[in-house]
């Protein structure tokens, strides 16, 4: 059974832990630079990216997480996708710069524009995929190595970059486990990421 770390500085890390356990993984909460040494993959959850950045900075997590991502699979949802992107807009802010893409924060608007939608066109097998968007970002550019697995209103919302995965929505808030299962399938298969 693979052990997946969930960055537990702030956000819906418990929802991710639940989804990962249902999909068959062991889960470790990551709050310091020590935990990444004993995990096979990392999830960066939804939450506030500015808040997570501050806490990564306070506890010297930035570089260890970046180094982890250069070797092992990372899955980011919403704020997690923002933290993984090479370029962040609205406003511009630092990131782990692991994936060649540009992400615009809060791009649908404020909370009143949050929504649950059904994605019919996607590459995760048969059946509709529910997507919960909360003050969600929009991926404005997918660069080298990116493969779009699902889109909404013409914008990519689920993208894989080799061993890495990003979603601008929150599969951890839906009962459907296919997105987490897709990520777990990447562990140990040695496929290359964008970096």
């Amino acid at each position: 059974m693979p052990t997946v770390g969930v960055l537990a500085l702030q956000g819906d890390y418990e929802a991710h832990a639940g989804a990962l356990r249902r999909a068959g993984a062991g889960v470790v909460e990551v709050r310091t630079a020590e935990e990444p040494q004993r995990i096979d993959a990392l999830v960066i959850p939804g939450g506030e990216s500015t808040s997570m950045l501050k806490l990564m900075d306070y506890y010297g997590l930035f570089e260890p997480l970046r180094q982890f991502g250069l070797r092992k699979p990372v899955f980011g949802t919403c704020a997690g996708a923002i933290l993984l992107a090479k370029e962040v807009l609205n406003p511009s802010q630092p990131s782990l710069d692991l994936l060649d893409m540009a992400v615009e924060r809060n791009a649908y608007g404020r909370q009143l524009d949050s929504r649950v939608v059904i994605l019919s066109g996607h590459s995760l097998g048969d059946g509709d995929l529910e997507a919960v968007f909360i003050r969600a970002p929009i991926i404005r550019r997918v660069g080298q190595g990116g493969e779009v697995l699902a889109s909404y209103l013409g914008d990519p919302v689920l993208v894989q970059f080799g061993r890495h995965l990003v979603a601008t929505f929150h599969p951890e808030l839906s009962s459907d486990n296919r997105v987490h299962a897709r990520f777990l399938a990447k562990i140990g298969n040695g496929s290359n990421g964008a970096k």
Binding site: Q10, G46, E48, R115, V132, I134
Partner: peptide
């Protein structure tokens, strides 16, 4: 769904 979206933002604020 409308209620889940409301609770969804509260989920994002957890741990904060």
């Amino acid at each position: 769904d409308a209620f889940r979206v409301k609770v969804g933002l509260a989920e994002m604020l957890k741990g904060g």
